[in-house]
Every structure is written in C-alpha cells, then in structure tokens.
C-alpha cells in the first residue's frame, strides 16, 4: 500500500483552478520532488495534503485513510506534517519551546516533551540556541527550526516547502544532508523546491506540475530529458 495516494485532486479559487485532476502516490521510504514553475499549484497541493484547505473534489488517502476533510492538527496526528515556504516560528518563545509544541503531539507530559525536543535540537544542530527566543535566529537557523518543529511531531511523511530557498551553498548542503539522514531513518519526504540542483540531488522521483496538472514524472535523469517538461518548466527557469 502506498503511504500517500492522491487521486483526481482539484481545487478552485473562484474562477481559477489552481490544481486540477492531480493523481500521484508516494511510497514509504521515498523522497519525492514536486516541481513546476511559479503558480503551478505546488503550495496549494501542500495546503490540501496538510488539511489547511479542503479540495474542491478528489481524494487523498494517507496510510489508507481518507484525510480530505481532516483539520491540519488531525492530519499531523496521523503522521503527516508540513513546513511552510515562509518560515513560521513562534517568535516570542524559546527555540526549545518552539520544538516542544511539536513534541507535545505525542508526549503530553512536559518533561517528556522537553526531552524529545532536546533530542531534535541536537539533530538540527540548534541545541546551543535552546534558550534563545525564536525571533533572534538567522534565516538558516530558522529553516532548520522549521524542520525541527515538524520533526518533533514524529511524522512518517514530511512535506517540505522550499526548505533550501535563500540559503548559501554550505547551509543548504547541511539541510540536504539532514534530509538524507532522516530519510535513511525511515521518514518519507515530499518536497517542493524551486532549485533544480536540490531536487535533482535529493529526490528519488520527481513529479512535474504545470497549470495545476501533472505533465510528467520519473527519476531526476528522466525528467531532465522529458521534452514536455523542458518546454513547460526548464525553459522558463531563470
């Protein structure tokens, strides 16, 4: 059974169809890249998968359960967590408390949640900032915190929205290494990324969106040779 099965997913905003007739699946253990030009519907897809907006039609099955109508916190409880394209820290809480909010999902007791959060902070290399406030972190730190908060919810599928955007090469490499490491430990990833370098480097499989539709999928190597994809997407790349 696939971990995530999306069939005929559609979302309209007034007259505009941001996503239409999208069908794909994600297998356990994969890193799947979701690419497409600006406005292709990637963020909208993420918002539907994570319960922030309801699909106009179609079906989302996660671990065999329909999650179409679930709220984000319910989806999270099932093991599907997202990060945001624009980082969303809790600015007036400490870094540790930021991560604890995620950890509370499966550890209602504060002592346990704190312990879990500390472990996560070690993983994302932010333990030394545990007592600092969220708002004083730098962008690379915020990007790692974004992953850390999600990680603390112990997801089986993690959706990353442009997690490497705006980072320098070294900082980016650090995050990519973290993702690979986590993937080896069993977490499945669906990642949206603007930077081809990142996608090609990281994903086992790539899905290409254009105007809310899937126009191709395959391994990074196949995708980079697919003429339809090249026309729609790579041609527009700046």
């Amino acid at each position: 059974m696939s971990l995530l099965e999306v069939s005929n997913l559609r979302r309209d905003f007034g007259g505009l169809t941001a996503v239409h007739d999208l069908t794909f699946s994600v297998e356990p253990g994969e890193i799947v890249g979701l690419i497409g030009p600006n406005g292709a519907g990637k963020t909208t897809t993420f918002a539907m998968l994570s319960g922030f907006i309801t699909p106009t039609s179609g079906e989302i099955l996660f671990k065999g359960t329909s999650i179409n109508k679930l709220k984000p916190h319910q989806v999270c409880l099932l093991g599907l967590t997202r990060t945001f394209q624009i980082v969303q820290p809790f600015p007036d809480m400490t870094v540790l408390e930021n991560v604890m909010i995620g950890a509370y999902t499966h550890h209602p007791n504060t002592v346990d949640a704190k312990k879990k959060a500390m472990e996560v902070l070690e993983r994302i290399n932010l333990a030394h900032k545990a007592e600092e406030q969220g708002k004083i972190l730098t962008l690379p730190e915020l990007k790692r915190l974004e992953i850390g908060k999600a990680l603390a919810t112990e997801p089986s599928l993690l959706l990353l929205d442009e997690v490497a955007a705006g980072l320098k090469d070294v900082e980016m490499e650090e995050i990519l290494e973290l993702v690979r490491q986590l993937n080896r430990e069993g977490i499945t990833f669906l990642i949206v990324e603007h930077l081809m370098k990142v996608i090609m480097n990281l994903s086992h499989r790539v899905i290409v969106l254009d105007f809310g539709q899937m126009i191709g999928q395959g391994t990074p190597a196949e995708i980079s040779k697919n003429p339809a994809v090249l026309a729609a997407y790579l041609g527009k790349e700046d």
């Binding site: 984000p72 969303q88 909010i101 908060k149």
Partner: peptide, 8 residues
C-alpha cells in the same frame, strides 16, 4: 497556522 500544523 504553525500551531495547527504541529498538531495543536
């Protein structure tokens, strides 16, 4: 939104 995404 961030809270909701983290299971709150």
């Amino acid at each position: 939104d961030a809270a909701e995404a983290l299971g709150v």
